[in-house]
């Protein structure tokens, strides 16, 4: 629980500095979609032992989709305020903050710091929830995996709160999983491209830095979600930069899901973890209560009775 407000509110405004496309539900492609889809997901309202969370509002239903706003209401029988979610850029988010937003969820530390300058808010970094990886279909691309290089990426290449990826990653340990790690026949590499989902600024920054380091004819190319999925499946590009959940309840299930995206991803050495990132939440103390699930997903807490 981040903060507490004893006064119940009927509605609240939320700013998210990430693109959200509801058409991608239930498989988010950005952290903003992950935040919004989690509000509407009853499964997300359970703890790591799969028990219902009593202190989480919702689940929510998406009622209206505007050009840059989403209207969310609790489903029948659920608690919580109506939410107006503003999908903003970092620049426009500052205007919304100045206008008095109830909750800001952002990956920009600078924006969070600016929002925290208001006296009536509480700012807190969320947990390290995403790991950005580079995947090479044949594992032949020379990616520097040293801590120094990864720290340099976290410090200089991206403009978000990042660190060199740490710990043992669930995709690198398949012990006990029955997932068939059969590598499909890969198409020959026809490009020298490092591709990434074009909505992800972190992925873009990492891809560009890789291109800068690789030199030669390598280029960085952003792809739309569907195109990226197809490209990942074919394995025909030189490298792919994308995020993975840092933590998972069921390692083997996540591994299965990963291999379903592209079988070659299950191969040893195909994925190199680069950096971990986290979001920041800034909430008005007198308006909303926040809580976090075990995997650092932000959740609205109902007002205290």
């Amino acid at each position: 629980m981040v903060t507490a407000s004893s006064a119940p509110v009927d509605s609240a405004s939320v700013v998210v500095t990430s693109p959200v496309n509801v058409q991608n539900a239930p498989r988010p492609t950005t952290w903003g979609e992950r935040f919004v889809f989690a509000l509407a997901d009853t499964a997300a309202k359970r703890d790591c032992r799969d028990r219902p969370l009593s202190n989480v509002a919702g689940p929510y239903g998406i009622r209206d989709v505007g050009r840059s706003t989403l209207q969310l209401e609790p489903v029948a029988g659920a608690r919580g305020p109506r939410l107006t979610i503003h999908l903003a850029t970092e620049t426009s988010a500052r205007d919304l903050v100045d206008a008095g937003v109830d909750l800001l969820v952002t990956d920009s530390p600078a924006l969070a710091a600016y929002a925290a300058t208001r006296g009536d808010v509480t700012s807190a970094p969320l947990g390290w929830d995403r790991t950005w990886v580079v995947a090479t279909p044949r594992g032949s691309l020379a990616i520097d995996s040293s801590v120094a290089f990864r720290s340099g990426l976290a410090r200089d290449a991206v403009r978000t709160d990042a660190r060199a990826s740490e710990g043992t990653h669930w995709w690198s340990d398949t012990t006990g999983c029955s997932t068939a790690m059969v590598r499909s026949a890969l198409a020959s590499i026809g490009t020298s491209r490092v591709v990434y989902p074009h909505d992800e600024s972190v992925a873009r920054a990492l891809a560009e830095r890789l291109v800068a380091v690789l030199g030669g004819r390598a280029t960085a190319t952003g792809l739309a979600p569907n195109a990226f999925r197809s490209a990942l499946l074919s394995g025909s590009e030189m490298a792919y930069v994308f995020p993975l959940r840092r933590m998972t309840v069921d390692r083997c299930r996540s591994m299965t899901e990963l291999v379903e995206r592209a079988s070659w991803l299950g191969g040893r050495g195909a994925i190199t973890a680069l950096i971990d990132t986290r979001l920041h939440a800034v909430v008005r103390r007198d308006r909303l209560n926040l809580t976090f699930t075990w995997d650092s997903t932000v959740a609205i807490a109902p007002a205290r009775p």
Binding site: A157, A205, E208, V211, A212
Partner: peptide
């Protein structure tokens, strides 16, 4: 024009 080309 190439923000992450630093140090080259």
């Amino acid at each position: 024009h190439f923000r992450n080309e630093f140090d080259r």
